[in-house]
């Protein structure tokens, strides 16, 4: 089973390296190779997740290894679904390293299959966890878009055209990317929180118990709600939207890891 994981990781690393080479020399054959590798790795990754699900008997999203691996999977398929509809030049160059980073975190986390306490064995586990992680996947894409926006904007503003001016798409395209990813990511995040609270009611008898993870996801939710609200009313677009996508993602990452390692609570995996 772990071989599938390693194959996926290898594929992602290969795709990242190919994308970086393409970024350097612009050889389109290498980009084609990178695309094929990322799709292949994405398929391996799905197979791995399914295999693990069969072995564990529940959705594999209960410890850090599984959650982060699932997160990487969500980024991958979020990216591929995005590519299917829009074309953002060199987006893959920025997304693939994030996928690899997540996969490496997953690789060096404990891969033991966890026994699930009976209270948590519910249909809500896959619903809640996968929606929440998918939301994170799209927020990660918005984060990438934000970084690309700031890099490109900097060169246009300073009139110093270096590595990015010719290789990155227009500011407009990057702003669209930001909007699209938040437009998908935010509703998913909302659904994640709602489904989590419904599940909490079922498992513990209360919708909300101010567990640190719950608190932090609410904080993150408010940050993104504010971003979207300001975007449509006060013109938080473009540069500010890009910065906020980065800030928001930092909060989302803290909710995912910071809370587990620094604070703890019912969500802390591998506890």
């Amino acid at each position: 089973m772990i071989i599938l994981f390693n194959l996926a990781l290898g594929g992602y690393i290969f795709a990242t390296l190919s994308y970086l080479i393409f970024f350097g020399n612009g050889n389109k054959k290498i980009r084609t190779l990178a695309r094929a590798a990322i799709i292949g790795a994405g398929v391996m990754h799905i197979l791995y997740t399914v295999a693990r699900m069969v072995k564990a008997g529940h959705t594999p999203i209960t410890n850090n290894h599984e959650a982060v691996s699932f997160f990487a999977l969500a980024v991958t398929w979020g990216y591929l679904s995005f590519r299917w509809r829009y074309r953002v030049q060199n987006f893959g160059v920025f997304v693939s390293p994030i996928i690899v980073a997540l996969m490496l975190v997953a690789k060096f986390s404990s891969q033991a299959v966890m026994e699930l306490p009976p209270a948590l064995q519910s249909l809500w586990l896959p619903v809640h966890a996968s929606i929440a992680v998918m939301a994170n996947g799209f927020l990660a894409l918005a984060f990438c878009g934000g970084i690309m926006y700031l890099l490109q904007e900097r060169e246009i503003k300073k009139k110093k055209f270096g590595l990015f001016y010719h290789r990155l798409p227009s500011l407009e395209a990057l702003d669209d990317l930001n909007r699209h990813c938040l437009a998908v990511g935010f509703p998913l995040m909302t659904l994640g929180i709602i489904s989590g609270s419904v599940w909490a009611k079922q498992a513990w008898g209360t919708y909300w118990q101010w567990d640190p993870k719950e608190t932090w996801s609410l904080i993150t939710w408010f940050i993104y709600a504010a971003i979207l609200h300001q975007r449509f009313t006060a013109g938080w677009r473009r540069r500010r939207a890009a910065i906020m996508a980065i800030v928001g993602f930092a909060a989302a990452l803290f909710t995912l890891w910071g809370v587990n390692f620094l604070i703890g609570g019912v969500h802390s995996y591998a506890g």
């Binding site: 246009i156 227009s170 407009e172 395209a173 669209d176």
Partner: peptide, 9 residues
């Protein structure tokens, strides 16, 4: 060209 980099289309 610059206009296109800012506005896209």
């Amino acid at each position: 060209e610059l206009a296109k980099k800012i506005f896209g289309d």
